[in-house]
């Protein structure tokens, strides 16, 4: 599913970042570990097509990201990639359900509604649908962030430090949720973190 080779990236005024090659089969999970400042988030954005590599190859599914123009890249990312942010990102003017519908896109239809209801039921958000995002508790926001990363059934889910600032119990719950949901929507999952508590949950690991 994910295949990178000799991936390099340089910020305008920064040092050259080189990343180890990644080979991740479909529906598999991968943990990328590393201390702060080694370019973990940069790698995540490269995989999401939000940054363009200086050199190297990056393929997701059958698509080489470097072959896409800007517009195609936007479309590809919207359809095939889901992001779970370290700092949750929502549209403040919309309620919970509307945030989810926005992520699903206009063509979601009835199937989309079924998918949405099943997902919010699993995540325990069914009673929060018409609330503003800002009215949710921390834990509910965390779960909504996961839902937003996965509701459109992407090929690849990228999670950036999903367990930062969580106690052990919640850390475990979040990782399990991510893995379960990735399995249900048949998505590959890459988690990027400096949280070594997560290690034991993944067989497939890369250290930066």
């Amino acid at each position: 599913m994910v295949h990178t080779q000799d991936l390099e990236f340089a910020y305008p005024e920064g040092a050259l970042l080189q990343f180890p090659d990644i080979q991740l089969p479909t529906n598999e999970h991968l943990l990328i570990l590393g201390p702060s400042g080694v370019g973990k988030t940069t790698l995540l954005y490269l995989l999401a097509g939000l940054l363009l590599p200086k050199s190297g190859q990056l393929r997701i599914g059958d698509t080489s990201l470097e072959s896409l123009n800007r517009k195609q890249l936007d479309q590809f990312r919207g359809k095939h990639i889901g992001l779970v942010f370290q700092k949750y990102q929502f549209i403040g003017a919309l309620n919970v359900e509307e945030n989810l519908r926005l992520r699903q896109g206009r063509k979601a239809g009835k199937e989309g509604k079924k998918r949405r209801m099943a997902l919010v039921n699993r995540l325990g958000l069914q009673d929060q649908l018409h609330k503003k995002v800002s009215a949710l508790s921390q834990g509910q926001q965390q779960r909504l962030a996961i839902a937003l990363g996965i509701i459109h059934m992407p090929d690849l889910v990228l999670a950036d430090e999903p367990t930062a600032n969580l106690d052990n119990d919640n850390c475990e719950k979040v990782i399990n949720l991510l893995k379960e949901e990735a399995n249900i929507s048949k998505s590959s999952l890459i988690i990027i973190t400096h949280d070594y508590r997560v290690m034991k949950h993944f067989d497939n690991r890369i250290e930066l």
Binding site: A48, K71, D74, G78
Partner: peptide, 15 residues
Amino acid sequence: ERKRELALLRVYGFR
């Protein structure tokens, strides 16, 4: 103020 939300929309695939 909504810069992050606009960035989020780009992540969602909006041009």
